[in-house]
Write a protein that binds this DNA or RNA. Structure first.
Lengths: 145, 145
DNA sequence: ACTTGACCTCAAGTCGGCTTGAAGTAGCAC
DNA sequence: GTGCTACTTCAAGCCGACTTGAGGTCAAGT
C-alpha cells in the first residue's frame, strides 16, 4: 500500500502523466491497479523509468527498450543481445568523445576556419570512418534538464 | 573541377540523395553548382556530412547542428555555446557509460531478476540521479550501419 | 447531495527528419 | 534527333514519440 499515484510518479520523475500512460499502453511500464480511476504504481517504476530514460539517451527506441527489459521488470535473458547493445554503446561513446573533443577544441582554437585547423580535421577524420556509413530510422536522444 | 556528383557523395557517405537535398534545403550543406541539373559538391562536403552524422549521434537536432557549424563550413564563433555543448556531451557520455556497464553486467550476471541484483541496481541508481530530470523535445540519435 | 478537480479514454494533432511519387529535363549513346 | 536514364522539383506521406482536446468519472470536502 506504499504505491504511488500517477501524479506522484510524474512529480518525482519529471515524466508527464500523458507519457506515463503512453508507456503503459506500449507495455513499458505497468500499474499495480487503480484507486478510483487513478493509476497506482509500485515505487520500482521509478527505477524502471530511469532505465527507460537512459535507454532513450542512448538512442534506443521504445520498442528496443521494451525488448531489452520485459514489462515485469525482469530484464530479458537474451545475454547476447544485451552484449551487442553494449558494444553498440561503446562505439557511440567513442564517437561522442571525439565530437566533444572537437567542440572543445573549436571553442579554444584561434584558427579562422576550423576546417583548416589540422587538430580539428584529424579529430573529425578519426570519427568519420566510424560514422560515415550512416543512419536509418533513428531520431534524437532525449534531452536532459 | 574535382567536384563530386550527388550520387557519388551518396555512394561514399551512405547518405541518400533525398537526404542530401533535404540538408541543402535546410542550409546544412551547399552545392558548388550544377552539371546540367545535377548537383555538384566540393569534396569537403564529405567531412561536413561526417560532422553532421556525429552531431546527430550526439542527439543534436539539425537546427542545432546548423547553428554550431555555419553552412560555409566555418564553425560558429560562439565559443561559449560550443563549450556548453561539450559539457552536455560529457554528461551524456557518462550516462551512456553507465548504461553500457549495466547492459554488460546484465549479460553476465546470473541473478534471476536484475532488479534484485545489487550491482545492477547500484549502477542504475548512479545514473538515475542524472537522468531522471527528464527530456523534452528530443528524439533518437541516428543509427550506425 | 453536490461541487470540485484531478484523473480517465480515445481520437486527432504536432514535430522532426526524412521518403515517396508524379511529372519534368538535361546530358550522353546511338 | 531520339531514347534512355539519372537526375530534378514540389507536394504529400510516414514514423516515432508524444501532446492535446473533448467529453466522462470518481472520491473527497463542505
Amino acid at each position: 500500500m506504499t504505491d504511488l499515484d500517477i501524479s506522484e510518479v510524474a512529480r518525482r520523475t519529471g515524466v508527464p502523466p500523458s507519457t506515463l500512460r503512453y508507456y503503459e499502453e506500449k507495455g513499458l511500464i505497468a500499474s499495480t491497479g487503480r484507486r478510483g480511476l487513478r493509476r497506482q504504481y509500485d515505487p520500482a517504476v521509478l527505477e524502471r523509468l530511469a532505465l527507460i530514460a537512459l535507454g532513450r539517451t542512448a538512442g534506443f527506441s521504445l520498442d528496443e527498450i521494451a525488448t531489452m527489459f520485459a514489462p515485469d521488470g525482469q530484464p530479458r535473458i537474451d545475454r547476447q543481445m544485451l552484449a551487442g547493445k553494449a558494444d553498440e554503446l561503446d562505439r557511440t561513446i567513442r564517437d561522442l568523445s571525439v565530437l566533444r573533443d572537437s567542440l572543445r577544441h573549436a571553442a579554444a582554437c584561434p584558427a579562422p576556419s576550423h576546417m583548416e585547423c589540422p587538430t580539428f580535421r584529424r579529430l573529425l577524420l578519426d570519427a568519420a570512418s566510424g560514422v560515415i556509413a550512416v543512419p536509418r530510422n533513428r531520431k534524437r536522444a532525449p534531452q536532459r534538464s
